[in-house]
């Protein structure tokens, strides 16, 4: 996949459940449909929770990388 253009980065490091999901829900409203939000989190629940959130809200996860306790998630706003 070509380098994805990120419209906004959300630094959710140091936040615990439900923080990352809450902030993701707020941040996605600040970008346009079709744009990509990057979420950076340290909560171990961030990956499964944001995946579940995306399924529920109908947004698309483009990529997830985990390295040294930091999770990076790229989410495309679909609606």
């Amino acid at each position: 996949m070509a380098e994805t253009k990120v419209a906004k980065t959300l630094d959710a490091k140091g936040l615990y459940c439900p923080g990352p999901v809450l902030e993701t829900a707020k941040a996605i409203k600040q970008i346009n449909v079709g744009e990509v939000l990057e979420v950076i989190a340290t909560d171990p629940a961030a990956k499964p929770d944001i995946e579940a959130w995306a399924r529920r809200t109908g947004n698309q996860i483009l990529d997830i990388t985990q390295e040294g306790g930091v999770t990076k998630i790229l989410i495309k706003r679909v609606k």
Binding site: L22, R56, T57
Partner: peptide, 12 residues
């Protein structure tokens, strides 16, 4: 607080 906010964020 946790359930309500998590659910609200996920569109419930």
């Amino acid at each position: 607080g946790i359930l309500a906010s998590g659910a609200a964020a996920a569109g419930y």
